[in-house]
Amino acid sequence: MSGHHISSAKFLWGVALALFVLTFITVAVTWIQIPEPWNIVVAIAIAVVKALIVVAFFMNLWWDSKFNVLLFIMSIAFFLLLIGITLLDTLYRVDPVPSF
């Protein structure tokens, strides 16, 4: 729970290495042409993993107070809410883009 977590240099380099590898993978999978929509799923999944690694180990949320974790989760939840409910409209319109 302490806010003063000190990571070792080795650990930080390890985190960065993992991120570099994931960056390479996300580029590499585009070479093998995964069919729609799985290519999007894979790309987003890798990005999410990368983001979580940054949040947990660079931003030290792993060792941080629970409320800061909650704040982060809350921002993601409300972002998903914004997207989810808007898509309820835009995906289900009879005439997708109203013509004037």
């Binding site: 409320f67 800061n68 704040l71 982060f72 921002s75 993601i76 409300f78 972002f79």
Partner: peptide, 21 residues
């Protein structure tokens, strides 16, 4: 201060969230 920054990051996420939408 750190909690204040996290609150600010929440606003940043939702700010960019609009563009992602």
């Amino acid at each position: 201060s750190k909690m204040g920054m996290w609150v600010f990051l929440v606003t940043e996420i939702l700010f960019f969230g609009g563009l992602f939408l």
